[in-house]
Amino acid sequence: MTGKDLKVGIGDMKFARGEGQIITYALGSCIGITMYDPAIRLGGLLHIMLPSRTDPKDPKIFKYADSGLQEMIRKMSAFGMLKSRTIVKIAGGAKMFEIRGNSDFGNIGQRNAAMVKKLLMEERMRIAAEDTGGSYARTMLINIANGDVIIRTAGKPEKHL
């Protein structure tokens, strides 16, 4: 799992140790969550799409914030991650379209962000930095060697979270 660039699709999670980078493209209303334990240089990136898994038989664990975060923490902890040392950053949760007369439409991004924050608080994991909301898509990348998180948006310079 070292020295490689990993790509995370929608509703997926990957993690790596030591070096390389993990990237997820074009987060719209979805949320990207990075976790990084600097002591062992273990980093992961989760890309969730919806707040909660309502059907317990649904095998797509990483599609939902609740089941996805739980599984991410479980897996990374098995590789030595300590929650107390871990740096968490989140990005995404945009509202891509605004429909006049229907303000509820497209609020999923906001609901995703609220759910992720609530769950992380319950896990007692502090969010070190975030770039959420707005009306534009974001690409999120974590550098495993140093935990640096980069956000790429159309028409704006890269941003370090």
Partner: peptide, 27 residues
Amino acid sequence: LSVPSSTVNMLGGILTVPIAEYGYETD
């Protein structure tokens, strides 16, 4: 039909809108 809404954005981000809207029904 509703009034139109539009955006200029990354293709991937735009396509997550319908995918998330019906995410509990279909992928």
